[in-house]
Simulated assay, not measured.
Amino acid sequence: MAKATITFEDINVTVTVPAGTRVIEISEKVGAGITYGCREGDCGTCIMQVTEGWNNLSEPSVLEDKILRDNYAGKHNRLACQAQVLGGKISVKPA
Rank of each mutant, 00 (worst) to 15 (best):
R69D: 15
Y36Q: 08
V15Q: 07
E52R: 14
S91W: 08
K66M: 11
Q84D: 00
Q82R: 11
Y36L: 02
Y36C: 02
V15M: 05
T35N: 11
L86S: 07
T14W: 04
R78W: 05
K66G: 01
R39F: 13
C46E: 00
E28W: 08
V30G: 07
V85Q: 05
C38L: 10
C46I: 01
C81G: 08
I34T: 01
V17A: 11
A83N: 10
Q49P: 00
N71D: 06
G87Y: 08
L79E: 05
I90W: 12
P18I: 01
Q49I: 02
T45L: 14
T45Q: 14
T14R: 04
I6D: 06
E52I: 00
R39S: 12
Y72L: 15
G74M: 05
T35P: 00
G53N: 05
E40W: 02
S91I: 04
R78I: 03
I11S: 03
I34D: 02
R39T: 11
K66A: 12
P60I: 14
Q84P: 01
G88Y: 10
Q84R: 15
I11M: 06
E9G: 00
N77M: 15
K29H: 03
V62S: 12
V92Q: 05
P94D: 10
Q84G: 06
V92P: 06
E59G: 00
K75G: 00
Y36R: 13
I26C: 03
F8Q: 03
L79T: 07
V50N: 05
V92N: 06
G41R: 04
I11W: 05
F8A: 02
I26N: 05
C38A: 10
G41F: 06
G87S: 14
S91L: 04
E40Q: 14
Q84S: 13
